[in-house]
Design a protein around this nucleic acid. Structure first.
Length: 358
DNA sequence: TCTGGGGTCCTAGGACCC
DNA sequence: TCTGGGGTCCTAGGACCC
């Protein structure tokens, strides 16, 4: 029996959950996002496959989505409903015989299983999830986490795909580096400037050149991505949050200082509620501001003492904001509280299973 | 055309100490 | 008087993912 990595990814997750309770939406273009009002400032969280045919995709402004697909049904984001569905799916995966589960998000996870027939195991996983939740998923099969994750895209919807060292070159070699998990537009541009645009070119690039251009950690990491190399074993160590944040987009831009102060206090209070739930104090305050025209600034300050005090957090955020000396209208304000480490089990930062970053 | 809200990690460079 | 190399801590800023 050989160890295999399965990447389980729910198909159009939010839409699928909505259709469970509203079957009349099956077959129609559906968009879930914001408060379900496409005249408001908000973005698409999930678009159904029917809506995607019209060019609607997640991350797109609702105002633009409704222009592309006026006949779509727009629904508000219902966090509790998706959380419940997610918990149900993950519980089923955790109970799968021999499975090691590593959560990656609401609607996706890595599952490690020893098997001699990974396609058959993948179909078992799909059938189990469908029977328990009524939801379909796609599954990527790989010999590393990166390959399993990338494979899923080739299996959608409802299917499976196997990507290993044996077919990596054939499947991925000629594709743009942006097809890789962890390489976005910016990194692709920077790679392009040193003559690297395909996956093969990245995988074959001299390590020294990548280190010179991207630094001692990111450089070698990019080279490994180009070869599909990454961790081979799924890790079920429980995830520990490092920070909690809240941010809010205002339907009309904020300019009045009193309004801004009030907004910061509201956000700080929400952060403190999370800190209490976690039982860990805030050690550093991050302020995130989005201005018009569109650009985002973040600032960080370490607190002299860790705190649960919302006023201290709000005042620190306000001080950071004033130091920006930027009086342009504010579209979005966010506060993030970075927490003190828990007593044990936290310290080694996970450089694997990373949810973001290079 | 208009761009959410939840996260994570890396790099560069300054300040300071030995 | 002019100068090294190593280490730690901190902030600014960037990038990416679901």
């Amino acid at each position: 029996m050989a160890p295999w990595v399965f990447h389980v990814d729910m198909d159009q997750f939010l839409v699928a959950v909505e259709r469970l309770r509203r079957p009349e939406l099956i077959g129609r273009p559906v968009v879930v996002g914001g408060r379900g009002d496409p005249t408001e400032r908000a973005v698409v969280s999930t678009a159904s496959y029917e809506a995607r045919e019209f060019g609607v995709h997640s991350g797109m402004a609702l105002k633009l989505a409704v222009r592309k697909c006026p006949e779509a049904v727009f629904l508000p984001v219902d966090f509790p409903a998706y959380e419940a569905a997610s918990a149900q799916v993950m519980a089923v995966l955790r109970e799968f015989p021999g499975a090691v589960l590593e959560l990656l998000g609401w609607d996706e996870a890595f599952v490690g299983v020893d098997t001699d027939d990974p396609e058959s195991t993948a179909r078992d996983l799909q059938a189990t999830v469908l029977a328990a939740s009524g939801l379909h998923c796609s599954i990527g099969i790989g010999d590393t986490l990166v390959r399993a994750k990338i494979a899923t895209g080739f299996g959608k919807p409802h299917g499976t795909f196997r990507l290993t060292a044996a077919n990596w070159h054939e499947v991925m070699g000629e594709r743009s580096v942006e097809a890789l998990w962890g390489i976005g537009r910016r990194t692709a541009e920077r790679l392009g400037r040193i003559g690297i645009s395909t996956v093969d070119q990245l995988g074959e690039a001299p390590e020294e050149a990548l280190i010179t251009a991207f630094g001692p950690a990111t450089g070698p990491h990019l080279g490994r991505l180009g070869r599909g190399e990454s961790r081979r074993a799924v890790d079920d160590t429980p995830w520990t949050a490092r920070a909690h944040g809240h941010e809010s987009t205002y339907q009309t831009d904020l300019t009045d200082p009193e309004e801004i102060t009030a907004a910061l206090r509201t956000l700080a209070a929400a952060v403190v509620a999370d800190l209490h739930a976690e039982g860990r104090a805030c050690a550093r305050v991050h302020l995130k501001v989005r201005f018009r025209p569109f650009f985002t600034v973040t600032r960080v300050r370490k607190l002299p003492q860790p705190t649960f005090d919302a006023d201290v957090i709000a005042d620190t955020a306000l001080a950071l904001l004033q130091r920006l000396e930027d009086d342009r209208p504010i579209r979005l304000l966010g506060i993030r509280g970075e927490m003190v480490p828990p007593e044990d089990g936290y310290d080694p930062p996970r450089t694997h299973g990373r949810r973001g970053g290079p």
